[in-house]
């Protein structure tokens, strides 16, 4: 672990931006501590919007935007925010970013906004965003907090894209609405479009992520 940290510092320090923690933070958020597959946070939206790949990608983009933005602002204000109202301040900042994104979708991507329905607004209550603000941005400088937001957003978006890809492929035989699996030999499995399909897909993804990551290092007694 110590070695790992050092090498990360060496690669990142020339950039001089992240206080030497950038790469490690990125790797931690997107892979080692992936919010969906390892921490299993925020799965409500992950299950709800992944019936199509396109929806999953837009939702992933929304979370990246919100996570990066809210982490930045929370981190910039971290020394001025009174401790007692920090959580409410975080929620206000997060809500601002989410509503901003929602308005943007409604104005320029109407159909997508209709398909995602209430789930964009529900990012406000997504535990990933709040969790990163509370656990990371409050203790760290702005740039590295943004990296952390980006990493966790990517971690969420990638898992969503994987689930969305397989649900759309197996559920309808299409990708991005284009027929991929010929209906002559593939019968779309409706189950994958429905809620249980999302659970199965997420379960398998979590299993694979954990298998690839290997067991947690044992703590020395």
């Amino acid at each position: 672990m110590a070695e790992n940290k050092q090498s990360a510092c060496v690669t990142c320090q020339p950039a001089g931006l992240c206080g030497g923690k950038g790469l490690l933070t990125l790797k931690d958020g997107a892979w080692r501590n992936n919010p969906l597959a390892i921490q299993v946070l925020g799965i409500c939206s992950a299950l709800a919007v992944t019936s199509r790949l396109e929806n999953s990608l837009v939702m992933g983009a929304a979370l990246i935007f919100v996570c990066v933005g809210s982490n930045l602002i929370v981190s910039l204000l971290r020394k001025r925010t009174p401790h007692r109202i920090r959580m409410i301040a975080e929620v206000a900042i997060i809500a601002t970013f989410v509503i901003f994104f929602d308005q943007f979708l409604k104005a320029f991507y109407w159909d997508m906004s209709k398909q995602l329905g209430p789930y964009v607004g529900l990012i406000i209550t997504n535990c990933i965003v709040m969790g990163r603000a509370e656990a990371f941005a409050l203790q760290n400088p702005p740039i590295v907090s943004m990296v952390d937001g980006l990493a966790n957003g990517i971690g969420y978006a990638v898992v969503l894209a994987i689930i969305g890809f397989f649900r759309e492929l197996l559920g309808t035989g299409e990708i991005f609405g284009h027929q991929v699996l010929s209906s002559q030999w593939y019968t779309p499995n409706q189950l994958m479009i429905l809620a249980p399909g999302a659970f199965f897909a997420l379960g398998i993804v979590i299993g694979i992520f954990n298998a690839l990551k290997g067991p947690e290092p044992q703590e020395k007694k």
Partner: peptide, 21 residues
């Protein structure tokens, strides 16, 4: 004061976004 200021800023940002879109 902090709460009021933060609330005002957030409200302004959203008002701008809403009226623009």
């Amino acid at each position: 004061i902090y709460a009021a200021a933060l609330g005002t800023v957030c409200a302004l940002v959203l008002t701008f976004a809403a009226s623009f879109t």
